[in-house]
Simulated scan of single mutants.
Amino acid sequence: MAEKQINPWLKLALELGPVLVFFIGFGRMKDQTFTIFGNDYSGFLVMTALFIPLLLLTTGIVWALTGKLSKMQVATVVLVVVFGGLSVWLKDERFFKAKPTLIYLLFGGILGFGLLRGKSYLRLVMDEALPMQAEGWMILTRRITAFFFGLAVANEVIWRNFSTEAWVNFKTFGLTAALFLFFMTQGRLMQKYGIEKDDEAA
C-alpha cells in the first residue's frame, strides 16, 4: 500500500506533539504528588501515564492519514507502552528513562548486523526519499550506527547521574538537537554520493 502524502507540518506536529505535551506537563507537575486509587504518583509518572495513550492516538492518526508506519515508529510505540507501563505500574521512573537507551541500542544493533552482512538496512527504508550510491549508503549507515550507540551511552549517563528534570530537558531538546545536527553534518556525504532523479531514471 502506497504511503499517502500529508502536510509535513501536520505530520511533524503529530510526531513531536506528545513529547512537547510531556515536557510542558512535567514542568508544571514535577514537584507535585498525586493520590490515585489510594496510590501516590509523582508528576513524572502521571505524565508518563498520559504520554502513552497520547502517543498511541497520534501514531494512529498518522497511520490513518498516511496508510503506513515505519518500523522505527512501531518499535518506539511498543517500547513506550512496555517500559512506560512498567514505570507507572511499579512506580519506578527508571524503566521509562531507560527506554531511549533500548531504542537506540535496538536501531544501532539492527543496522550493525546489516553492516556485518555487507548490507545497508538503512537504504531499504530511506532509498526512495534519499537516492544515493551504494558506497554512500554504507558510509552513512556506519555513521548512524555509531551515532545511535553514542546516544544510548549519553542517555544512560544523563538519567543515572542527573536529576529527572535534567533528563526530561535532555530527552526533549538534547536528543532532538543531536539528531538534527547529525543529519546537517552529513550534507557533504549526501552531495557526493547523491543520485539525481534524472540520472536514476536513465
Rank of each mutant, 00 (worst) to 15 (best):
D40G: 05
R143Y: 09
F22W: 05
P53Y: 11
F96M: 15
F22A: 01
F173A: 11
G67M: 09
P131N: 12
D92V: 04
R94N: 13
Y41S: 09
V80W: 11
S163P: 01
A129R: 13
S163H: 04
I158Y: 07
Q191N: 13
K192M: 05
S70I: 00
T141I: 05
L116V: 12
T172N: 06
S87T: 02
V19S: 11
L86Q: 04
V21T: 10
L57D: 00
P18L: 02
E196T: 12
D40M: 08
L16R: 04
F37C: 03
F44W: 12
A49Q: 03
Y193K: 10
K197D: 09
L111R: 01
A202M: 14
R28G: 07
L179R: 04
I61Y: 01
M138W: 08
G112F: 11
A177M: 10
F51T: 08
F22H: 03
L90K: 14
A2F: 00
D31T: 05
R188P: 00
L151M: 15
E15M: 08
T48A: 12
G84P: 14
F34R: 03
L181D: 03
F23W: 14
G109L: 06
F182S: 04
A2N: 13
L179V: 08
K11R: 09
S70G: 14
A178M: 05
V82K: 05
V74C: 08
N39S: 14
R28H: 10
V153N: 10
M72N: 07
I6T: 15
L57C: 06
P131F: 09
E156M: 09
A98Q: 07
L20T: 10
A146V: 13
F148W: 13
T76D: 15
L86T: 09
G118Q: 06
G109M: 07
Y121D: 05
G25L: 13
I139D: 06
L116A: 03
W159A: 06
L124E: 15
T35K: 09
T59F: 00
